[in-house]
């Protein structure tokens, strides 16, 4: 049977690995090019991986709410305001999507795992700037 390296040695290696993961993640978060507070954000609502709604948030003048329903009776009430979007109520048990509140940056998507719902924010693509106006609203 192959002998394992001493626990002490392994511990040092594993600690270095942990620190490496920590630094990599922190670095990624700090210098992430994806983070954007751009004025023109598009909210994309996915359910089961299918884009069901795409909203140019800068075009929202008055706040409005709508409900996304799933096949299993899931319901998420979503509110859009000028420049931000939130799930304001949901019938899932943990309500984590509601706790995420209004989001206006691209750092993290809003997710409701029990209802398979993901709301992604992305800046308007500069190369096809006119296209977003034609998307379903």
């Amino acid at each position: 049977m192959k002998k394992l390296p001493s626990p002490r040695k392994t511990a040092i290696l594993l600690t270095i690995l942990i620190l490496g993961i920590l630094i990599a993640c922190a670095g990624f978060l700090l210098f992430s090019p994806k983070r954007s507070h751009a004025d023109r954000l598009i909210a994309e609502i996915y359910q089961d991986g299918v884009l069901i709604k795409s909203i140019p948030l800068w075009e929202v003048t008055a706040s409005e709410t709508f409900t996304v329903r799933g096949q299993g009776g899931e319901e998420n009430v979503i509110e859009v305001r000028n420049g931000s979007i939130a799930v304001i109520s949901a019938n899932c048990p943990d309500k984590l999507c509601v706790h995420q509140g209004f989001r206006s940056d691209t750092l993290l998507p809003i997710t409701c795992l029990p209802n398979h719902l993901v709301i992604l924010l992305r800046p308007e693509a500069p190369e096809n700037g006119g296209q977003s106006d034609a998307l379903t609203y």
Partner: peptide, 11 residues
């Protein structure tokens, strides 16, 4: 969710 966007949570 079948949405690659959730991988943004990884870090």
């Amino acid at each position: 969710t079948k949405t690659p966007g959730v991988l943004a949570y990884l870090p």
